[in-house]
Design a protein around this nucleic acid. Structure first.
Lengths: 134, 134
DNA sequence: GGCAACAGGACTTGACAGGTCCTTTAGCAT
DNA sequence: ATGCTAAAGGACCTGTCAAGTCCTGTTGCC
């Protein structure tokens, strides 16, 4: 269980590549896709989501491409993952109270809350800088 | 991401019910299913898996049913979840080394390992006893 | 205007979640 | 022994979603 999807995996690969490029160097989608070995059309969707959530800047037309929206140390793995996978929710009931009518006597609820917090904590603590300085 | 499936959810409900019964009281599948509001045929599959992994004992025929294989404090939530959902793997590469050819330079790998360990740790620390004494 | 590049919608395919149904096997009771 | 009871297990169904593909915009340089 708990598996990251391919989309999430690709997303991480792609953004790490970007983070590894010289700052202000605009990268072509085709270059990124080739470098990280991901179908270009699929990666396009992923970077669209990145662009919408603002962790990446996009430029169209000749000389266009993608750029990290900020310095690598300002972008966390959590942001990247949640941008494409949606929020981290071990169980639907962790979304909001009253979601399940069993809430009142659901003794497992606090456990999932703890799992959620731990995982988010770990991912939030890793930045793109940590992932490129290998 | 990371969502528990319905199967996992049902599994937990069912086993908690069992753990809440008097020791040595054999419960009928039909009773469990009714009590925790899960389709009986589906719950049957789940308890078959429980039975195979040994966290539950089953008896056939008249007077048959299910029994917790040990005291509630001896069975962890991790056992329950992994029995029906399979092992907790944030990424395929956490299964074993060399799974992805990118392994050597995959800086994310240790992060997923940490996530996996944390989650397993939390779930392993919760027993059925903790979940019934509400 | 025309080419370069991302944006976004529509569509396809296969797998898997979430069940259902039916037959078989095991155990007790008469 | 035979019939009833209850779990075991296989076969099947259905809808959703992951994982892409493809085509048509839209934007921007030249």
């Amino acid at each position: 269980m708990m598996e990251l999807t391919r989309k999430g995996d690709y997303a991480i690969r792609g953004i790490i590549y970007l983070a590894g490029q010289p700052p202000d160097k605009i990268s072509l989608l085709s270059d990124i896709a080739a470098a990280v070995d991901v179908p270009q059309t699929f990666l396009a969707k992923i970077f669209q989501q990145f662009s919408k959530t603002g962790i990446v800047k996009s430029f169209r037309g000749t000389g266009g491409g993608f750029l990290l929206a900020g310095p690598p140390e300002s972008i966390s793995l959590l942001q990247v993952v949640e941008a494409v996978e949606g929020p981290i929710l071990p169980n639907r009931c962790t979304l909001k109270q009253g979601e399940c009518e069993r809430d009142s006597f659901c003794t497992v609820h606090p456990v999932w809350m703890q799992v959620q917090q731990q995982v988010r904590g770990i991912l939030a603590g890793i930045t793109l800088k940590d992932l490129t300085s290998s």
